[in-house]
Design a binder for these strands. Structure first.
Lengths: 188, 188
DNA sequence: GCAATTGATTGCAGTCTCTGTAATCACCTA
DNA sequence: TAGGTGATTACAGAGACTGCAATCAATTGC
């Protein structure tokens, strides 16, 4: 390899974020993005399955790492705790990227199709976590329900994190959210 | 109104299901559907926002009715119970359409973009239920978490209902699923 | 009756997303 | 130095979706 400048994928991602912020997602064509990145439209689709995907890099690795962490959790840890612990491992990565995350969130919030894709990513996460819990020996239905609730709590936590005027770290919001889940579940 | 034969929307839905089953979703164009329904392509988009939507009719009403049922639930009923009760009101409608539901599910399972749209519908349901719970006076975070868990249980229940070789009614699977949720939550 | 309005449908042109296929060509390897 | 590799490019085309204007039966108001 090496004939071309490296980092095409990153350049496309950066150009996309930039243009989406400037002119909006729907008024930015894939051609605009590739032009800004010094590439051709066809190349974009070599790197991303569709236009939306450029906003969801590293998702696959993120999910795989979380599932792995759950699988590696101590056997005496409860299923929900093992997920919470896995999520807590990722917080510093996110806290270091708080501004970029907010910018991305602003873009996502402008278009239903982007929120839709985000839901699909959350569903993939949920699925992977449920699978990991099952490997730890939980009943299938219980694993799925725990994963669903945990992802729900995770969604709430990240939303609160991004909206927090005090900019408290993600860790704080995750703890609040999971604690809220336990408290809430007591009334079920 | 009345210049044209009535029921265009239903004809489009039926034609779509038929063609999707026969030749697959991706090998069926909107033009195919409208031709089968005796209409033009442009008319399809007067009725449905996009090609996927033809597989999700009545969704808006379904969500509205459930939210309304939750709002109207007795004040002494727990949030989770109020959702479960609302869902139980809909079971006979679904049981009467078991075959159609299976057929539709088979189509949805063939394409990621269709499952993605389904997730968006579930998210809308979740949102509406959380809103209804909040109106009943629950704390925001608690309402959201309960709605998330309930929709998770609902998804499991419908999946089990459609996969059940014994064809037990949806009511049965809903009860199992919500009972499983309560049991599972005890280990959180 | 009759004119005006309504609203579902149509026609058409055009943009953009996404795909299939084959070609290019610097770099790496044997 | 011949051949392989892999990212990129070129090109053509299908199909989803939109905007806008036109049609015309049924309905409504007078």
């Amino acid at each position: 390899m090496g004939r071309w400048p490296t980092g095409s994928q990153e350049r496309l991602q950066d150009a996309a974020i930039e243009l989406f912020s400037e002119r909006g997602y729907e008024h930015t064509t894939v051609a605009h993005i590739t032009e800004a990145a010094g590439l051709t439209e066809r190349t974009f689709y070599n790197h991303f399955a569709d236009k939306r995907e450029v906003l969801f890099p590293d998702q696959k690795r993120f999910v795989a790492e979380l599932a792995e962490a759950v699988r590696a959790a101590p056997a005496d840890q409860s299923p929900l705790d093992s997920i919470a612990a896995a999520l807590l491992l990722t917080t510093s990565w996110f806290d270091q990227r708080h501004d970029a995350a907010r910018r991305r969130r602003t873009i996502l919030d402008t278009r239903a199709e982007l929120r839709e894709r985000e839901l699909a990513k959350m569903a993939a996460l949920e699925e992977a976590l449920a699978g990991a819990l099952r490997e730890r020996g939980g009943a299938g239905i219980s694993a799925a329900l725990t994963a669903a609730a945990a992802v729900g709590a995770y969604r709430l936590a990240t939303a609160a994190w991004l909206a927090d005027p005090q900019r408290r770290p993600l860790e704080h919001h995750l703890k609040v959210s999971f604690e809220g889940l336990r408290t809430t579940a007591m009334n079920w």
